[in-house]
């Protein structure tokens, strides 16, 4: 197994109670591997109960990127959440710790 950080970088943003994390291949040649293995199911298992709502994945092959959208992921959103990182800015780091199978 290897961590997602070996293949990709990520940035998280927020809109209300929705978190968004882009995952971008360092090398565009790794995009097909990411698209095949960084599935909504795998991401959902990695984040566990902290994501209360549905997760959507958007594919951006021209950029070598995937965009994940997490609903009800910010404990109410930046304006009212009790959490320390109410924006979810640290969540890109949590994403990059996800473990993937080694490429063949």
């Amino acid at each position: 197994m290897m961590r997602l950080a070996a293949l990709a970088h990520a940035r998280s943003g927020d809109k209300g109670d929705t978190s968004q994390i882009s995952v971008i291949a360092h090398d565009p040649a790794d995009y097909p591997f990411l698209a095949a293995h960084l599935t909504v199911e795998r991401v959902a298992a990695h984040f566990g109960p902290m994501i209360e709502g549905p997760i959507r994945r958007y594919e951006l092959p021209a950029l070598g990127a995937l965009n994940f959208v997490f609903e009800r992921a910010l404990a109410g959103g930046v304006t009212r959440a009790l959490t320390l990182d109410a924006h979810g800015k640290c969540l890109s780091g949590v994403m990059l710790a996800l473990e993937l199978p080694d490429p063949q």
Binding site: H9, A10, R11, Q20, S22, I24, L60, L63, N67
Partner: peptide
Amino acid sequence: LATVKEQLLYEVLDPA
């Protein structure tokens, strides 16, 4: 390219 890609998708939900 990497800094621009990250910012292009920042706070974007449906990129289309």
